[in-house]
């Protein structure tokens, strides 16, 4: 488990983190969301010890990180960081030198590097020059860098920024695989689709503070905080979820009414509102009959 307790951090006069409490467990994907400048990246840099809080503490498995050389070395072996821009992270000119950099310095077996490349699907790329890789491949290489350290936690800053659909899909797959392997994954993102697909726990940051913490996504709050994602959501449920803006009740409606209400909900969702369809008696039956009629 990695956690921060009441950490404060500022760049010069600019306060970026204001008493932030955060916690992530192994075998879970913890998603940190918030708009640009909310403090996501700054938080991630604290988890790997690249930044030291001005006040408060970072704890790894309950032990307070002490920031001497030895402790930082151990922390960075356990918590590996994947930068947002792979070009900022990749420091070696060839793939093998790059992926072996971490394990070589941490005194680990270089088999780890080999396995990491295999895991991200870059086996056979060892002698390639990093500059000759595609954007998606560079991203996967930067994740392999982290995996090669055999860490307990992999911390990723905006892992899907700038990727196309296959690139996005492969990152989602990788994150889920890491969770399977028992790693804790921490992701900073403003991609709601990614958050929905992989997240187990969610934190919303706003101006350096945690404003939401929970095991489901609060779509209404996400929207208010400026987190970019789907245009809107249609949820079909019988819950009393209060985070949605529109609730459409179906109760003994005629087919015509069902059709009209549903299509209106689609339109609203398209415009960026979230809609909850509360389905009552006869809703599913009505939909079936409409579909029959269409045939």
């Amino acid at each position: 488990m990695i956690e921060t307790r009441d950490i404060w951090f500022s760049y010069g006069d600019r306060e970026v983190l204001k008493g932030l409490n955060f916690m992530a467990r192994q075998s879970e994907v913890t998603v940190v969301m918030g708009k640009n400048g909310a403090g996501k990246t700054t938080l991630l840099l604290h988890l790997n010890g690249l930044l030291r809080p001005k006040k408060g503490e970072v704890r790894l498995n309950g032990v307070r990180v002490s920031y001497d050389k030895r402790a930082l070395f151990e922390l960075r072996k356990k918590v590996a960081l994947v930068f947002q821009n792979p070009d900022d992270q990749i420091i070696a000119p060839t793939v093998w030198e790059e992926v072996a950099f971490g394990p070589a310095n941490a005194g680990l077996n270089l088999e780890n590097a080999k396995r990491a490349l295999k895991l991200v699907g870059l086996e056979g790329y060892e002698e390639r020059l990093c500059s000759q890789l595609s954007g998606g491949e560079k991203k996967r290489l930067s994740i392999a860098d982290a995996i090669a350290m055999d860490p307990d936690f992999v911390v990723m800053d905006e892992p899907t920024a700038g990727l196309d659909q296959p690139g996005f899909d492969s990152i989602v797959e990788l994150i889920l695989m890491l969770r399977e392997l028992g790693k804790g994954v921490v992701i900073a993102t403003h991609d709601l689709e990614l958050a929905t697909k992989v997240g187990d726990r969610f934190y919303y940051l706003d101006a350096g503070r945690v404003v939401y913490e929970g095991e489901s996504i609060d779509y209404r709050l996400a929207k208010r905080l400026g987190i970019r994602g789907f245009a809107g959501m249609i949820m079909i449920a019988s819950t009393t979820d209060t985070s949605v803006e529109q609730i459409v009740n179906f109760n003994g409606d005629s087919e015509h009414e069902i059709l009209e209400k549903t299509l209106k909900a689609v339109l609203k969702a398209y415009r960026g509102e979230s809609v909850l369809l509360k389905t009552g008696e006869g809703f599913i039956e009505g939909i079936r009959r409409i579909l029959e009629g269409l045939k």
Binding site: N48, L50, F73, R76, K77, A80, L81, F83, D88, Q89, I90, I91, F101, G102, N105, A106, G107, D145, M149
Partner: peptide, 8 residues
């Protein structure tokens, strides 16, 4: 990037 990966 070096520091994040235990550069020694």
């Amino acid at each position: 990037a070096k520091e994040a990966r235990c550069y020694s």
